[in-house]
Design a protein around this nucleic acid. Structure first.
Length: 107
DNA sequence: CCGTTGACTCTTT
DNA sequence: AAAAGAGCCAACG
């Protein structure tokens, strides 16, 4: 069957945003966890989708970090991201890592 | 249309 | 610990 590429991309973004919105304040998830949930290995594309993030505070994309628990990137700079996380009570250690206890598990 | 880029991840030096 | 290389896929020019 023939797949419409454009439409797939839009669906992809929507799913990424929906998952992201599930992460509670004070917790984090990873690009990998989202990819696993969507059954895709397009981890970079997840970053791409969040980089656009048209739904600024509504989609808490600052709660998405790297699989190795380092903070990762952010459209407005990683300092802004770290600040937002700290404001939610998330401790970032000396090696720029987030403690495991903050990781949110999708059900 | 096609090549490059990037908020990534995994494996292998 | 750190870097290189491969794989992945949407966005951009």
């Amino acid at each position: 069957m023939k797949l419409n590429k454009n439409r797939m991309a839009i669906e992809f973004q929507k799913k990424v945003y929906e998952l992201c919105k599930r992460v509670p304040k004070g917790r984090v998830t990873t690009y990998k966890a989202i990819g696993d949930k969507l059954r895709t290995k397009a981890y970079r594309a997840i970053g791409t989708a969040l980089n656009k993030n048209p739904y600024a505070p509504k989609v808490p994309c600052h709660r998405v970090i790297n699989s190795n628990r380092s903070v990762g990137g952010f459209a407005k700079g990683i300092n802004a991201k770290k600040k937002l996380l700290r404001e939610e009570g998330i401790f970032i250690n000396k090696h720029n890592k987030v403690e495991i206890k903050y990781l949110f598990r999708f059900k």
